[in-house]
């Protein structure tokens, strides 16, 4: 099986500081991949390189065989991205924001309307869809951003802390939606600090510390029982 996300020898330096050091990762189609690590380990930097927000100092990030930095448009067409902070255009309503994102992905107008209605329902956005983002709570912003990431049916979802600010009901909704999408072939690359989410959702994990992978499961389907992952994580990252 060809990997959907292929990160090869990727290094990112900020001046003398090495944020990510010679990283290699490979994630297959339909895989739910958990990317763990302590604060400042290099998780968000890695995600920003995969989504084209940072240029790697060396190495390559391939999405469906396209280099995100040398051949960005085909690579980015396959990506849905949820950043760690759900920033929106404050003066646009949720509906307008979703229309805008669909415009960036060049989606047909009729499909856009249908999809917006679908995600308004899926994430229970309700009347807030027609309110401006400046009035949204953190949780509502997160729902809009998740809708924006999924609305163009991406092949790969890159997601940085997906459950920030969500109430338990919304968190359940998100988890169920993501799990259901992976069964239909969506590849998820998820960074999070919440180990119970990883235990519940992820097929395979890797742990990064000081820019280097210190642990990576070699095959999909490894099973972890309650608390086992936490013990391992604390042991590896101390």
């Amino acid at each position: 099986m060809n990997p959907t996300v292929q990160i090869s020898h990727v290094t990112k330096k900020f001046g003398p500081f090495v944020a990510v050091d010679n990283l290699d990762l490979s994630i297959g189609e339909g895989e739910f991949f958990g990317f763990l690590g302590p604060n400042g380990a290099g998780k968000t930097t890695t995600i920003k390189m995969i989504t084209g927000l940072y240029a790697p100092t060396s190495g390559t990030c391939l999405i469906n065989g396209h280099d995100v930095h040398r051949d960005p448009l085909p690579a980015k067409r396959s990506i849905g991205y949820v950043p760690d902070q759900p920033f929106l255009y404050e003066k646009l309503t949720g509906r307008e924001f979703l229309h805008f994102v669909c415009g960036l992905f060049n989606m047909p107008a009729a499909l856009v309307r249908e999809k917006i209605e679908e995600y308004t329902e899926v994430f229970e956005i309700g009347d807030f869809i027609d309110r401006r983002a400046e009035e949204y709570s953190q949780g509502m912003r997160q729902r809009i951003v998740l809708s924006a990431a999924l609305i163009h049916d991406p092949g790969v979802l890159i997601i940085d802390e997906p459950l920030v600010g969500l109430d338990p009901r919304s968190a359940r909704l998100v988890k169920d939606t993501l799990k259901e999408r992976t069964t239909k072939g969506l590849t998820v690359f998820m960074s999070t600090h919440l180990l119970e989410i990883v235990e519940e959702l992820c097929d395979r994990i890797a742990i990064i510390k000081q820019g280097r992978i210190i642990y990576e499961e070699s095959q999909t389907g490894a099973r972890r029982s309650n608390g086992e992952l936490e013990t391992m994580f604390l042991e590896l990252t101390k």
């Binding site: 991205y81 920033f87 255009y89 805008f100 994102v101 960036l104 924006a148």
Partner: peptide
Amino acid sequence: EGDAFWCVRSAPVN
């Protein structure tokens, strides 16, 4: 473009 520039930078836009 502000903090929401991420959605343009990560989209297939020249």
